[in-house]
Amino acid sequence: MAGLHKSFGGVRAVEDVSFEVAAGEMLALIGPNGAGKSTCFNMLNGQIRPDGGSIRLAGHDITGQKPRRVARQGVGRTFQITATFASMTVRENVQVALLAHHRRIWRFLRPAGGEFRAEAEALLERLDLLPQAERAAGILAYGDLKRLELAVALAGAPRLLLMDEPTAGMAPAERVALMRLARTLATGTGLAILFTEHDMDVVFGSADRILVLNRGVLIAAGNADTIRADPGVREVYLGSGVTTGGH
């Protein structure tokens, strides 16, 4: 995977931001609210068209393509507010993602219950969701829902995974487990992971590299120690550490 480069001009929300994610890397994007993190994410998976700049995935230009095209090129994502198919069972959620990935949607007569069943169950096993396979997604507990969303995103066999506040609202123990799983995926399959997060324990504990965005501009990049020590980052984002457990 060649990496990713992008830059935007003109948009006030995000201005001239460029970065790369390498295969197997976990990159964190942090910054104050309204800094443009979500805008970046939405441009990366095609929900917003950038006004300028380019996005390249493994050498292919995917700038301005629609979300479903971007998804087919190998970009998976999870949302800040989880988005799953509430009326369908956990297994069906993953099955429909697999059907979409293998372009088997436009079949009108063959029962879908048996399609990609084994693959779906293997994926659920991996995310510890197999016992819940026959429950409707709409009644899952919050943490389970987050993992289901991840399973659905992974069903598309992405090369790049975007996770928007993956651990928000999770209990601390669950947070650690989820990020450990993400790490396994990254090192095991060469998946590149880009994530935003407000929990500094998660960010400093799991990211290989950290980007700090403020008012649409990248103000710092580096590993945990560099970022922690950066006076600019402390001023606009980290603060004195009273409310984050101190750093």
Binding site: F85, S87, V96, H101, R110, G113
Partner: peptide
Amino acid sequence: YAPFGYALRASRDSELRAEAIGL
């Protein structure tokens, strides 16, 4: 109950997610 029906229900439940998996 065919793949099309699954995809249709998926689109209804969450358009955002459906598009994000390529539907």
